[in-house]
Simulated assay, not measured.
Amino acid sequence: MHPQSIVQTLPKAGGAINKNAASQDMTSSSLQILSDTEQDCAKAASVLRDGGLVAFPTETVYGLGADACNDTAVARIFESKGRPSFNPLIVHFPDVEAARAHVDWTDAAEDLAHAFWPGPLTFVLPRRAGSPISRLVSAGLNTLAIRVPAHPTAQTLLRAFGGPVAAPSANRSGQISPTKAAHVVDGLGDRVDAVLDGGACPVGLESTIVGLSDHPVLLRPGGVTEDQLAEVLGHHIAIRKNADAISSPGQLASHYAPDARVRLNATEWLPNEARLGFGDVECDLNLSEKEDLVEAAAHLFDYMHQLDATGATTIAVTPIPHHGLGIAINDRLTRAAAPRDDYSR
């Protein structure tokens, strides 16, 4: 017997913020809610130039952006998120040429950039001597994590700003990543100066990260799959096993976590659990009834936000196939279910 569904308690989950409500909130807050128009992207770029923080949509998740060359602005990212200072940030650029100027480029980087940029793929490469990007971005490492996002709003913002933008996910450190502007406002509030509302993020999982300082190595699975990387490189890519030292963003053992406990590979439901399903199962929210991993990835964080908002103490998740995008989905779920330490909340 399945427990009574809690789906009736789920909040409405529109992709955009209610602008009227947002305007009322702004009477007591400095937070600006901006649209994805060229004019508002120019306003957001001005906020970045003044050392402010701007949350903006990418195809993966919403990023919390700051001028990557401004030490104080970058420090505000860590402070606003409660992010540990040893966890490096990804720097976003509008195109390959702009990104190349800050790192020691490689043939593998050229091949992968040609295939996947703009898109959900991040490179970790040695920092080029003389790069003005803040050392805080690298968290003490001699490398930079760089990406060229494909989202049109991100592209408009980056070109309006005219410089590199450091941007981890726009949420409190360790918590569920934001895939809608409302998630950013709920999680960060006036810790951010402006939010560019570009609707729901289509990929819904953070970028794949590949280390390219030596032989290519997969540091974090994401929107570009291992098989896709291998096809371009002409060989299977090495996969980083658990290591003591963090070499790129997204490697904390506990991450992407709701307030509720997460129970994985649930084949039956326990009383009073929020139920996150995949495939032909009875549940509160279904990542993809037709077992489409692309659809499941796009829904994952939003559905976790919704189930967490019900106040359930546990979110139970049915098994997700461990291939293709399922590898990245399972990576996020495993980290969400991991024991939580001081750095993860």
Rank of each mutant, 00 (worst) to 15 (best):
R275T: 08
P132D: 08
D25A: 09
V165E: 06
F56G: 08
A245G: 02
V54S: 11
L144Y: 02
C201H: 00
Q39V: 05
A200N: 05
C283R: 15
A298I: 07
G222E: 03
G163M: 15
Q32S: 03
D40I: 07
T153S: 14
A298T: 08
P152T: 09
C201T: 01
R263K: 01
G163F: 14
V103Q: 07
S80E: 06
A336G: 07
T37Y: 04
G82L: 13
T334N: 14
V91T: 13
V54D: 10
A182I: 09
F56Q: 03
F93T: 05
L141P: 00
Q4R: 11
R172P: 05
V137L: 12
Y343S: 13
V210G: 01
P216F: 02
G15H: 12
V294D: 12
S288K: 05
R100S: 00
H102M: 12
E79A: 14
A170R: 15
R332P: 03
V96K: 06
A150T: 12
R340T: 03
D341T: 07
L233H: 01
R263M: 10
V74C: 07
G324M: 04
I237F: 00
N20M: 08
D259E: 15
K180E: 05
D292K: 13
S5W: 12
A68R: 03
S344F: 15
A66L: 08
H183Y: 04
V317K: 14
T334L: 12
G223I: 06
A42P: 07
D107A: 10
G199A: 00
L287K: 05
L270K: 08
R128Y: 05
E268M: 14
N70I: 13
R240H: 01
G326S: 09
W117C: 06
I133T: 02
G14K: 05
S80C: 11
F78E: 02
Y303Q: 10
V203H: 10
S85I: 13
K81R: 15
A73V: 11
P168Q: 08
Q155Y: 13
D190V: 01
V165I: 07
V7A: 10
D186E: 14
N87D: 04
S80F: 11
D292N: 15
R76I: 01
N272H: 14
N171S: 15
G277F: 03
S46V: 09
M1K: 14
M26C: 01
V210T: 01
I33L: 11
A253V: 12
V165Q: 05
P221E: 14
G51A: 06
G82N: 05
T318A: 13
A73R: 15
L48H: 02
R127Q: 04
P94A: 06
H2L: 10
N87R: 11
A13M: 14
E97V: 10
C69T: 10
A108P: 03
G51M: 08
